[in-house]
């Protein structure tokens, strides 16, 4: 069985606010998951459940076949890495990572040193004197050097410069090839990171509104453009998530799997068919409802 994580009908409430509404999903080993959604959509809440920061109000969650909350073995298998405030941390980089290694069963020092070299991070530097971007690099090292079964990165790249982010992405791909676990990247930098994803979980208002592998996701996202009347006629029965008009020309974004025959028909009617970037689909799928009405 390849599923490392399964969640069924997970509900999480913060007092009167429902953060997650009957969320169900599964995650397979060896994959990189993109957890995408707007601010407040429920991404961090979902990660909190996976890492046992919180207990679901209802529903079932299994990590490697067991409930993770207060389960010593399973909590060791899940690591949630986020940008913690390290201003009070007066240890050196080496001592900081030693503390991480003390707690985690499989901390790969060799790989940690390799990443330190890549990020130009000296072992003797004081952690609280690192810039925000360098602290983010340290978090990345902490996450990827620990060969947990499930590694969760929550907006970890904030503050990192472009070259460091690129190195982070390279290490994610390397770890995915080498490691037996899975990696979840919660992010807003969709256009930059979408090539890393094997699978997308799109969450909005506490619900997972899209759960598909990246190829399926991309194949479902197409833009049809051409004469306004022709586009309207062709797309009237399709799942249109965005539309734009300029003069007599119209473009619509369709989010559904179109058959070869349908695509041929579109071409025959003079419509242009183009791919849509993942980020544009995300924006269209999660835009506020009132903006649809205006």
């Amino acid at each position: 069985m390849n599923n490392l994580v399964t969640g069924k009908n997970l509900v999480l409430d913060y007092k009167e606010v429902r953060a997650l509404e009957k969320v169900s999903f599964s995650m397979e080993k060896g994959k990189v998951y993109g957890l995408i959604g707007r601010n407040g959509a429920g991404k961090t809440s979902l990660l909190s459940l996976l890492a046992s920061y919180r207990k679901a109000d209802s529903g079932t969650l299994h990590v490697m076949g067991e409930t993770p909350f207060e389960n010593a073995r399973r909590m060791q298998d899940v690591q949630l890495v986020y940008q913690r405030d390290l201003s009070d941390e007066d240890d050196t980089v080496q001592a900081y990572l030693k503390a991480c290694a003390d707690f985690r069963k499989a901390f790969d020092w060799k790989y940690a040193y390799r990443m330190m070299d890549d990020f130009n991070l000296e072992r003797t530097w004081k952690v609280n004197r690192l810039s925000r971007g360098m602290q983010a690099c340290l978090h990345v090292i902490e996450g990827l050097a620990t060969t947990s079964g499930v590694t969760l990165f929550d907006e970890i790249h904030n503050g990192m410069d472009a070259p460091s982010r690129q190195k982070f992405y390279e290490h994610v791909l390397r770890r995915q090839e080498e490691g037996p676990g899975l990696i979840v990247l919660s992010t807003h930098l969709i256009s930059e990171m979408s090539y890393l994803f094997d699978h997308i979980l799109l969450i909005d208002e506490g619900r997972i509104i899209e759960d598909s592998d990246i190829e399926t996701f991309k194949s479902k996202s197409v833009a049809l453009s051409g004469n306004k009347d022709a586009v309207d006629a062709f797309s009237k029965d399709l799942n249109v998530i965005d539309e734009r008009s300029l003069g007599g020309v119209k473009s619509v974004t369709v989010f559904e799997a179109l058959s070869e025959k349908t695509l041929k028909d579109a071409k025959a009617k003079g419509l242009d068919i183009t791919d849509v970037p993942v980020q544009d689909v995300f924006i269209s799928l999660t835009k506020e409802k009132d903006s649809d009405e205006t």
Partner: peptide, 8 residues
């Protein structure tokens, strides 16, 4: 300690 995978 929760961050480091320790149970309550």
């Amino acid at each position: 300690f929760i961050y480091h995978g320790v149970t309550r």
